[in-house]
Simulated scan of single mutants.
Amino acid sequence: MAISEWQSVVRWAECDAAGIIYHARVFDWFSEGRITWLKNHGLDYYEVLRPQGIELLVKSANAAFHHTLHPGDTVRLSVALETVTPTRAVFHYRVAAPSAPELVAIEGVTEHAFVIGGRARRLDRAAPQILEQWQRSLRVGAC
């Protein structure tokens, strides 16, 4: 899998009253990590995809919380493109636990449909060169 990393520090504003990361904020991290992944793999969302009218519509998003995170904890998010088809892309996310980086604090998956002009479209027909770049990114990261 083609992997990119994104890093931040948990802010108080991202936590609930108990000082634990608020679950909905994790999806913001996934979005930031995904934008980083796209940029690192020649598919910059703001310079390549959106100028061609290509959007990534979230079809599903889920996360599993294994360890709590608190204000001041360093968040190290690994993002991998799991699969890509002419109509969809699936990303996998892992947040390392700050106290034990070998442990996964949070992991998740998002599935996206390719949308052009407000409608779901097949990239192999609408933008074959972009689909080829997605597929190339997946092959480069293959083990």
Rank of each mutant, 00 (worst) to 15 (best):
L49Y: 02
R122H: 14
W29G: 01
E107C: 12
P86E: 11
Y93N: 00
Y93Q: 01
V109G: 02
D124T: 07
L69Q: 14
F65H: 07
I35V: 00
E102K: 10
A80D: 07
A113N: 09
V58K: 01
E132P: 14
V84P: 00
R121G: 00
D44Q: 03
G33Y: 07
F91R: 04
H66D: 11
T85K: 10
A97P: 12
L49R: 02
A126V: 01
A113W: 13
L69T: 15
I106T: 03
V48D: 14
H66R: 15
L103T: 14
L81A: 00
T85I: 12
P71F: 13
G108C: 09
L57H: 15
K59T: 01
K59V: 09
S78K: 04
I54T: 04
P98F: 08
A63N: 11
L56D: 06
P98V: 05
E102D: 13
R94A: 15
R94D: 10
T83I: 08
I130G: 08
A100H: 13
T110G: 08
G108M: 03
S31A: 09
A100C: 13
E32C: 08
G72W: 02
A64D: 15
T85V: 13
L56I: 11
I116N: 09
G117Q: 01
A64N: 12
V58H: 13
E111G: 08
G53C: 07
T74H: 10
L49T: 08
L69P: 11
P51E: 06
H66G: 12
R94S: 06
V79D: 00
E32Q: 12
G108Y: 06
R34W: 11
T36W: 10
V109A: 00
V84A: 09
T110I: 12
P71M: 09
H66I: 05
W29P: 02
S31Y: 09
Y46L: 10
K59M: 12
Q129A: 05
L43N: 00
P86D: 15
E107R: 03
A96N: 09
L103M: 09
S60Q: 13
A80W: 07
V115Y: 04
D73V: 10
L77Q: 00
I54E: 06
S60L: 02
Y45V: 01
P101C: 06
S60Y: 10
G118I: 05
I35Q: 00
S60H: 14
Q129N: 02
A80V: 08
V109N: 08
P98S: 10
A63D: 04
I106L: 15
H92R: 15
E32I: 05
V84C: 11
H67Y: 15
V48Q: 15
I54L: 13
L123H: 05
G72P: 00
G108T: 01
P128T: 00
R34D: 06
E132S: 12
P71T: 03
G53M: 05
A61E: 13
R50I: 05
Q52T: 09
R34M: 10
I130P: 01
L131K: 08
L38M: 06
V90F: 01
A64P: 02
E47C: 03
I106Q: 08
D73P: 08
T74Y: 04
G118D: 05
V104H: 00
R125A: 15
R34G: 04
Y46C: 00
A120M: 05
A89R: 11
Y93V: 04
T87N: 12
N62M: 10
P98K: 05
G108L: 03
E82I: 04
K39W: 06
H41N: 12
P86T: 14
F30Y: 13
L38R: 00
A89T: 06
H70E: 12
H41V: 06
